[in-house]
């Protein structure tokens, strides 16, 4: 199942809606890196609320996605990690160090807007 990517002003929002195969996740990866350039986006939100697990592959893929998007000049926020998923990730030894996270989409957008405004001032 492909992940829809919505453009909202300066941001791209990718909402993961169901369990993803590795291939879907890699497709999302390429699509986002490309669309950030196409839409000159300043930020990306990946909403993982519907993801019932985050295993090592998903974590690794998200981590590299965030770094690639960063190289393309945009920030990423991952939002909606469920409590059980967070618990399991930590036990498994998976971390998202250096990556912005937010409770939900609303918080994620707020976080991007704040960091974007700060950049503009500089």
């Amino acid at each position: 199942m492909e992940v829809p990517i919505l453009k909202q002003s300066d941001y791209l929002i990718a909402t993961i809606q169901a369990a993803l195969t590795d291939e879907d996740l890699l497709k999302l990866h390429y699509a986002l890196v490309e669309q950030v350039g196409k839409h000159r986006s300043k930020g990306v939100i990946i909403d993982v609320t519907a993801l019932d697990i985050m295993d090592s592959f998903a974590t690794r893929t998200l981590r590299s996605l965030v770094h690639m998007v960063k190289l393309r000049g945009a920030d990423t926020v991952i939002c909606g990690i469920q409590p059980e998923v967070a618990f399991t990730m930590v036990q498994l030894g998976l971390t998202l160090e250096g990556i912005s996270t937010a409770l939900d989409l609303e918080e994620g957008l707020a976080l991007l807007t704040t960091s974007n405004n700060k950049k503009r001032k500089i």
Partner: peptide, 27 residues
């Protein structure tokens, strides 16, 4: 795995753990 775990009445956290472990081993 999640379905079998649910039938046994495992908690949501345990079901997440079971599904994640299956994912890691299968990968």
């Amino acid at each position: 795995g999640r379905r079998v775990g649910k039938e046994l009445d495992f908690s949501l956290t345990d079901l997440t753990i079971i599904a994640t472990v299956i994912s890691e081993l299968a990968r």
